[in-house]
Every structure is written in structure tokens, then in C-alpha cells.
């Protein structure tokens, strides 16, 4: 099967998202000699700059500039892509908050197959694409057989494909802005409200003691706070802890929280979902404490302790106190 392959490039402040280079590798896992066309929407000089940047990696870059596209509103981008994409196209995009907004509806409108949150691609046989996805926060993986005879919209999980950093495409930017006329949507972008700043800045901490749902109850949070105090560390957490209002949002590590770069990270009662790990950068020394020996966090941690956090953490706090 031959199909035209496209990559939707998400960008901000004139810089392409990391996914731009990962989507090239993902495309080559489907069609080994694929030369995907990059599509960028936006407005102004920032768009031109990022198109030039992307042209180093993609042979063809389609630029669609229009005032209405200055903020990426999926409800406007979707009808635009429906005009631009040829029948049977395969479109790759990142599985981030924009990809989730755009992709499923676009697939339906294209009459193509929707293949979300892909972490691996096994290859194409005829018109059947075999991909890998995870379920239950990474506790189980699954192979999916997808019919791509009428095209596909594939959203790719960040970090799953090696970025192609060769930058040797010497590509061309084609201006398709003429297609962006008469765009309208029943959803209007108003503004972005920045996340609140809290009393502590976890992004500056060298050592983080991070609390997960395994703590079970708000009353147990002091167990972690005592450990952190004894270690001279700062308390951070996973998302469910913030949702339950046990700790402030500014303490959350992850894609919808803070990106942290500690030297040492203690993940206590945290399963290790990709959205959580996505906020942990700079290759820290990771210690995981979890009662489930198969928890995905043990795949990424350096050292693991299989134990109940409420039993083990006080013991560790005590040991550290004695050693002081």
C-alpha cells in the first residue's frame, strides 16, 4: 500500500515541539522510505521561523498562515486539514493536549481510521498496520491490527520514537495560506490562563520526595513530609493527589504539572504513568517504593523497594535520623 504521509507539527513561540523529529521516525516505521510532508499552521514571523527550522528535517513543509490560526484551535484546524489532505492520507501527530483535541474527530471526518496513543509500530502488511498501545497506566501492552486502506490519523506518544536529528532534508516551504479562507468554528479561543504559582518551587529542588495515590489518604501525607524534612528534600506528588486536594497543584510533577530536574527522585506509591514521568527530566537517580512488584515504575527506576509505603517510609525516616 502506498499512501501520502503527513506530520502535523505543533510549535510554540517560534520553536517546534520535540515531537517534530520523533514523527519522522514513526513514519519510517510504517513506510521505510517515507518522506513525510510537515504541516504547520499559525501566523506571523514566528511561523516563518519555525517552518525554516522544520525544513531542515522535512523535504516538504506546508505552511498555512492566517490571523485566525495564531492560536492552535483544533476546531479550526480540523476543517482546514480536511481541505488540504488528499484522500487516503496518513497523518501523524503528537498525543498531547492538542492531538487529543484534533485527532479523533479528524479521523471520523476523513473517513480514516483513528489510531491514538501509539507507543510502537510493528509495520504494515497489505493495508493492515500493526501498532502497540498501553492500557491501565502501562500495566499491560496490546497489539492492534488497524485497517488503514482509507487512511489513518495516528497520534504518537511522546518519547516513544527516537528523534531523527540528522537535519539533512534541505526541504522547501510551500505556502498554502490560500486554503485558510472562510474558516469558522463554533468554539472560540479566548485566552490562556497561566497555572498558579505555589509557595514552593519544586523545579528548583535537588531532591524530591514524591507522593502518589499509594498513600491512600490525606492523613498519611505527613509520613512523606517527615521523610522529606529529615532528608532536607522537597515534597512533590502525582496528579491524583492534587485532584483530591491533598496537596497544591504547584507540587504536581508531570505533563500537566511541573517539569522537574532533581538529582534524586523518590517515587513513593506512584505507578509510573507516562504523563507523570513526562515531567521528570535530567536523568535523576530514581528510587521507587511500591507494593506491586510489577508496577511500571520499576522499569524506569534505578533502585526499587517492594513494600507498603506506610510501613517502609517511617522506617527509612528513622534510619536517616539515627545516621545524622
Amino acid at each position: 500500500m502506498a499512501a501520502q504521509v503527513f506530520a502535523f507539527i505543533v510549535h510554540k513561540d517560534g520553536v517546534a515541539d520535540d515531537s517534530a523529529l520523533e514523527l519522522i521516525s514513526a513514519a519510517r516505521n510504517i513506510f521505510p522510505d517515507a518522506s513525510p510532508t510537515a504541516i504547520l499552521t499559525g501566523a506571523g514571523a514566528g511561523l516563518d521561523a519555525v517552518c525554516q527550522e522544520v525544513a531542515a528535517s522535512y523535504k516538504q513543509v506546508w505552511k498555512v498562515g492566517a490571523a485566525a490560526l495564531i492560536y492552535p484551535n483544533a476546531e479550526l484546524v480540523r476543517p482546514l486539514l480536511l481541505k488540504l489532505l488528499p484522500k487516503g492520507a496518513v497523518l501523524l501527530l503528537p498525543h498531547n493536549t492538542f492531538g487529543m483535541d484534533l485527532g479523533p474527530g479528524l479521523a471520523v471526518k476523513m473517513g480514516a481510521t483513528c489510531i491514538p496513543d501509539v507507543v510502537g509500530i510493528d509495520g504494515l502488511a497489505g493495508a493492515t498496520l500493526k501498532v502497540v498501545r498501553q492500557e491501565f497506566n502501562g500495566q499491560a501492552s496490546t497489539h492492534l491490527a488497524c485497517d488503514v486502506s482509507n487512511g489513518a490519523v495516528i497520534s504518537v506518544r511522546s518519547g516513544s520514537f527516537r528523534p531523527d536529528e540528522s537535519r539533512s532534508a534541505g526541504g522547501q516551504v510551500v505556502d498554502k495560506s490560500g486554503e485558510a479562507v472562510g474558516l469558522s468554528a463554533r468554539r472560540r479561543f479566548v485566552e490562556v490562563v497561566q497555572a498558579e504559582v505555589g509557595d514552593v518551587d519544586i523545579t528548583k529542588a535537588d531532591v524530591l520526595v514524591s507522593v502518589g495515590r499509594g498513600f491512600g489518604d490525606k492523613e498519611n501525607i505527613p509520613v512523606a513530609e517527615e521523610l522529606a524534612q529529615t532528608m532536607g528534600a522537597v515534597v512533590s506528588c502525582s496528579r491524583p493527589i492534587v485532584d483530591a486536594k491533598w496537596l497544591e497543584k504547584s507540587r504536581q510533577v508531570g505533563t500537566s504539572g511541573k517539569t522537574v530536574k532533581p538529582k534524586v527522585y523518590l517515587a513513593l506509591g506512584i505507578s509510573g504513568s507516562f504523563q507523570h514521568m513526562g515531567g521528570l527530566k535530567g536523568n535523576p537517580f530514581i528510587v521507587a517504593v511500591n507494593k506491586n512488584p510489577k508496577a511500571p515504575i520499576f522499569q524506569v527506576a534505578n533502585v526499587g523497594v517492594v513494600a507498603d509505603v506506610l510501613e517502609f517510609v517511617p522506617e527509612l525516616t528513622e534510619k536517616i535520623r539515627e545516621a545524622k
Binding site: T97, R186, V190, V192, V193
Partner: peptide
């Protein structure tokens, strides 16, 4: 409000 990367919130009006 839509929650976007970094916990920022994208405000929209929708019909």
C-alpha cells in the same frame, strides 16, 4: 477551560 501542558488553562467559548 481546557487543561493544557504545564497545567495552564485554555479558555474557550463553545456553542
Amino acid at each position: 477551560g481546557r487543561e493544557i501542558e504545564g497545567g495552564n488553562q485554555e479558555i474557550n467559548e463553545i456553542e
